[in-house]
């Protein structure tokens, strides 16, 4: 339904923009929470492109659940660039119809991920349950709010972060035990990250919400900075935000040059600053240093370090009968 809706929106916007045929138009298909980032980034790129080539460029955005968006592109939505929050969503385009080459992640610096985020804890004001680190989340009686790893990228990163830190501390058996205890403390398993935020902030459910660092900033803007506290765990997962040009589409539309420039500009100091302002951790060390106070240092581990690869992580943990299903099956 949502994809149909976004698609019809895209069609509508294409029809509406038909008047400006002379301009190059790029469609950026992205996930839900980058809306604010690209709202700031697109005008900056338009200005840059105008100065560099003298051309006007039209930028269209499509936002929705990450995997749903990827599916729309795989089934024909003509996106010039795709900007997601986990690599499997772009891998899908390589597997289905070869829309991008399989080595798409090597074409741009930093694993094709211009900025990263991490999982943090959001607790009630004053931290009444004294939550400091991962081990506090599995205390009996505590309620943890996080979204369903099966239906949301946010939940998937949370699960992998929880598993990863436990495995690093005590091996795989400990990780399995930890994750089991963690999910026993989850009273509501929302379908998406935003829904989990609503459950925690508006319904006042639970003692701690696990979410992206940048989502914590959204909570601050929406509900006021005094209403909660952000706790940084001692270690967490590095959540990459990979991007790619959709080769088959840009070659057909003749927009490759502009599309590549659009993505490369993400790594420019200006692009990195916009990311930092939206609480996405920039890759540029100078920009990161400038915004150091809003990004406390956290020991971050990557999916590849702990799980080998995204594909392995997906197969072992989220497939039917995988470790996540076992958590609930044992009951």
């Amino acid at each position: 339904m949502k994809t149909l809706f976004t698609r019809s929106l895209v069609v509508a916007s294409l029809v509406l923009s038909g008047g400006a045929l002379a301009d190059t138009a790029l469609l950026n298909v992205s996930y839900d929470v980058t809306r604010d980032f690209y709202k700031d980034y697109n005008p900056a790129f338009q200005k840059y492109w105008k100065a560099k080539t003298g051309e006007n460029i039209t930028l269209q955005q499509s936002h929705g659940g990450s995997s749903k968006q990827a599916m729309s592109v795989a089934s024909g939505l003509s996106a010039d660039v795709i900007t997601m929050n986990q690599a499997p969503d772009i891998d899908l385009l390589a597997e289905r119809g070869g829309l991008v080459p399989t080595d798409w992640q090597k074409r741009l610096p930093n694993n094709a991920s211009p900025f990263v985020s991490s999982m943090v804890f959001i607790v009630r004001k004053g931290n009444p349950k004294a939550i400091k680190d991962w081990n506090d989340l599995v205390k009996p009686g505590l309620q943890v709010i996080l979204p369903n790893p099966k239906t949301s990228g946010n939940g998937r990163y949370t699960y992998l972060a929880a598993w990863g830190q436990a495995q690093k501390a005590g091996g795989e058996a400990k990780a399995r035990e930890y994750v089991g205890k963690l999910f026993a403390n989850v009273p509501v398993l929302d379908a998406g990250g935003r829904a989990a935020t609503t459950t925690f902030m508006q319904r006042n459910m639970g003692d701690v919400l696990v979410s992206f660092e940048n989502e914590a900033e959204m909570v601050a803007r929406e509900f006021g900075r005094g209403s909660f506290e952000v706790i940084y765990p001692s270690s967490s997962i590095l959540a990459e935000n990979p991007v790619s040009v959709v080769d088959k589409v840009v070659d057909k539309k003749g927009t490759r040059k502009a599309a590549e420039a659009y993505l490369n500009f993400l790594w420019s100091p200006e692009g990195q600053e916009i990311a930092a302002q939206n609480y996405l951790r920039p890759r540029d060390s100078k920009v990161l240093a400038k915004y150091a106070q809003q990004f406390p240092p956290v020991k971050l581990f990557t999916v590849e370090e702990v799980f080998g690869s995204w594909k392995k992580a997906m197969d072992t943990h989220f497939k039917d009968g995988g470790t996540f299903d076992q958590v609930y099956a044992r009951k």
Partner: peptide, 9 residues
């Protein structure tokens, strides 16, 4: 069903 679709299953 939605969960499975999200995993491209």
């Amino acid at each position: 069903i939605i969960g499975k679709l999200e995993q491209f299953d």
